[in-house]
Design a protein around this nucleic acid. Structure first.
Length: 691
RNA sequence: GGGCGCGUAGCUCAGGUGGAUAGAGCAUCUGCCUUCUAAGCAGAGGGUCGCAGGUUCGAGUCCUGCCGCGCCUACCA
């Protein structure tokens, strides 16, 4: 609603400027005033116009305000300071729209969106770094679905890489396990933990001798080739670990639709198809000498083309070596001299498939059934089921991958562009985010021995290879234990199973919020103290605000859901306006409020701020999508909860004597509660019945 | 060397396309549970926004140069 009004205001101003001054501004800058006393919107555009029109800003602002006329939904415009134009909305009308839950229809682009996230190597337990990825990705999916987009969630599984080979080596060489024994272990509830340790041990074992490292290459080769016992073991292990990852993420309400695996990219010859096209179009060039002799290489993303095919006429600058050559520095090897393709190459093929440009498709079979939502997650296969959903062929693609992959992502885009699919490249977005690292203190708490060098560092990187890191399930378990203690002491009368369920929701709320409150570029220095906190800017804080709102209704003998279903029925826009508008008492000082007993003379602005914040959710969601930054919504949820808590303290509702006012306060609580529940759901956070 | 990112309160972080008095949380200190649950509220202290220039009515925000930190820069995935 808030967004809607802003657009209307901007349009109106634009039209007026065109008519009155003949000026066309590409952007009408509208911002949110620092205080609600200044109105709901403010524009400094008179300052910009001052130069163009050679008039004082204040004068321009006055002319605009005087000449623009009435705007639907707005009370008036006014000039402030040296030339600000402040706009005041019709509070009753906006509040009424919020209460009616009016969502102005906005046209949305058509086409399916593919969000790829998680992509955890299936050779060990998921850790906190993977949590950030999955939570960021899942929240982005929820944001898109909130605005009505159709989304497919994919989780790319690299099941043929060295990481998997390492665990296979561990089982065969270090543990000397038989296939039957491995099968039995794979049945264990936390097989991924077993692999975590084994992977670290194997990595260490490689350091012992060059001989050991050779084993790794041999095993890797066998896996890639397929059709042998080693490949079967790799499949067995990676599938079991993958299943564990899905279980772990399901604990956080994170689901996937499709799991494309590298083994199928290989066996269904995706690369061959891509390679042909890449050669035809000259995207890849063969190096016949130099450092990369015998390789097929590509120009590194971001580097300049040295030769130009058409548009420019820089022939005079062409020197002999310049013809099609890319300097070695700027080369990215795609196909190695031994004719094997690197990971970027496979990624290019995969992305061609995503946009329906490869001319090939996976085969599919059901892999995992989500017990709660009853949905199925599909996996790629070489001979799949006949009936399956249609994946791929999407209009847009967002990849959630940490910042270290930025260059590789750019290379993929560059390849698409050079293949002549510029529009696909433009619709491929890398959602890049910073690493989750351990503070030295945290690493010490976990019992890791730090090298002298590490001790001087500000933080320690998580490393699966070294076994450094906090496992996702461990963190979640710790959060549940901590929440459970609190729930036990607060609600001893409830069943243990119910208390457990409540604790789980709190734990998930805490964890998801923790990962979302940092903006993407920020490196998260993980610390148990912060992550395990349920106070202040946390998920449980917002959940608690909702529970409190619910309690008002319960104690008052109202049915919240029934009341919330038709909140608007309680009050007319005029009633709302009466409670939310400041009496036009000529610019005197704002009435001072007594914090203790403000029941009668409350500041309408303070209540209005709460309603206004509640109206901004859709606006914030749009912003999150446009900037691929879910943290804004997390921030918004916290601010709304914070304002609600203040409101809650300042206005005892059930003891309110004025019936009309009581109804208004209840309506306020219902509206904010509803809005918080909705916004929390977009963050993937549910609210428990009690806390 | 090149590319990307970061540097704001003791700590962890917000500060959309330059705008009104730079904000939260944690930690510290002081109050508030016979009240709709204190996972809360009210208040206090705490800032040369890394440094130096520049652009202009106006810079935490934009430009340049430094300083410090991280990541990427493999015929590993």
């Amino acid at each position: 609603m808030y967004r809607h009004l802003e657009n209307r205001l901007a349009q109106q101003i634009r039209g007026f400027l065109r008519e009155k001054y003949g000026v066309e501004l590409e952007r009408i800058v509208i911002e949110q005033p620092p205080k609600v006393e200044f109105g709901e919107y403010a524009s400094p555009l008179a300052f910009d116009l001052a130069k163009k029109l050679r008039k004082a800003p204040r004068k321009i602002a006055e002319e605009i305000v005087a000449g623009i006329g009435a705007i639907e939904g707005f009370q008036k415009l006014e000039v402030a300071g040296a030339g600000y134009i402040n706009a005041r909305v019709d509070r009753g009308a906006l509040a009424s729209a919020v209460a009616r839950d009016e969502q102005p229809t906005v046209e949305k682009p058509s086409g399916k969106i593919l969000v790829e996230h998680s992509s955890i190597n299936p050779n060990k337990a998921a850790h906190i770094g993977h949590l950030r990825n999955a939570i960021l990705g899942d929240t982005f999916v929820r944001l898109l679905r909130f605005v009505g987009r159709e989304v497919d969630v994919q989780n790319y599984i690299d099941n043929t890489g060295v990481q998997v080979a390492d665990v296979v080596v561990g089982f065969l060489r270090l543990e000397k396990k038989s296939r039957a024994e491995i099968e039995q272990l794979a049945e264990q509830s936390r097989f991924d933990y077993y692999c975590w340790d084994l992977y670290a041990r194997t990595s260490q074992w490689y350091e012992e001798s060059a001989e050991n490292k050779k084993v790794r290459l041999q095993v890797l080769h066998e896996i890639e080739q397929g059709g042998n016992e080693t490949a079967v073991l790799a499949e067995l292990i990676s599938t079991a670990v993958l299943r564990r990852h899905l279980e772990t993420m399901d604990r956080l309400d994170i689901e996937y639709d499709f799991l494309p695996r590298e083994s199928e990219i290989l066996h269904l010859h995706f690369w061959d198809a891509a390679f042909t096209k890449l050669k035809e179009t000259g995207v890849l060039t063969f190096e016949s000498e130099g450092k990369n002799k015998g390789c097929w290489v590509m120009r590194r993303a971001g580097t300049q083309k040295t030769s130009t095919t058409e548009d420019t006429e820089s022939t005079e600058e062409n020197t002999e070596e310049d013809t099609e050559a890319v300097s070695e520095e700027d080369q990215k090897v795609i196909v190695r001299s031994n004719a094997t393709v690197g990971y970027v190459g496979k990624d290019i093929a995969y992305h061609m498939w995503k946009f329906g440009l490869l001319g090939k498709d996976f085969e599919y079979r059901k892999f995992y059934h989500y017990p709660v939502t009853q949905k199925d997650c599909w996996v790629s296969a070489t001979n799949g089921q006949k009936e399956h959903p249609h994946f791929g062929d999407v209009a847009e693609n967002y990849n959630v991958i940490d910042v270290r992959q930025s260059e590789a992502q750019e290379t993929v885009k560059e390849a698409l562009r050079d293949l002549g699919h510029g529009e696909a490249a433009d619709r491929l977005t890398h959602i890049s985010y910073g690493m989750v690292v351990l503070t030295p203190r945290c690493a010490a708490e976990l019992g890791y021995k730090l090298s002298e060098e590490d001790k001087t560092r500000p933080f320690i990187g998580v490393s699966g290879r070294k076994g450094f890191g906090v496992k996702a399930d461990d963190l979640l378990d710790a959060l549940i234990v901590s929440a459970k203690q609190e729930v036990d002491s607060r609600h001893p009368e409830r069943e243990d199973s119910e208390r457990r369920e409540i604790a789980e929701k709190i734990a998930v709320g805490a964890l998801r919020y923790f990962m979302l409150k940092y903006t993407k570029p920020s490196v998260i220095a993980f610390d148990f103290k912060d992550a395990l906190s349920f106070e202040g800017e946390t998920g449980p804080y917002a959940q608690y605000a909702v529970v409190r709102a619910t309690n008002i209704f319960r104690k008052g003998g109202f049915d919240v859901e029934a009341f919330s279903k038709d909140v608007a029925a309680n009050l007319s826009p005029e009633d709302l306006s009466r409670f939310l508008s400041v009496k036009q008492a000529d610019d005197g000082p704002a009435p001072t409020t007594d914090d203790r007993r403000p029941t009668t003379g409350a500041d309408p602005n303070e209540l209005w701020e709460l309603w206004l914040a509640a109206s901004k959710t859709a606006y914030v969601v749009d912003q999150c999508i446009a900037t691929t930054e879910p943290a804004y919504l997390a921030k918004h949820v916290f601010q709304l909860a914070q304002m609600f808590n203040t409101f809650y303290h300042r206005h005892p509702i059930l003891t309110e004597l004025d019936e009309q006012r009581k109804k208004f306060l209840l309506t306020t609580a219902a509206v904010v509660r509803q809005e918080l529940i909705r916004a929390l759901a977009v963050l993937g956070i549910e609210v428990p019945v009690v806390m």
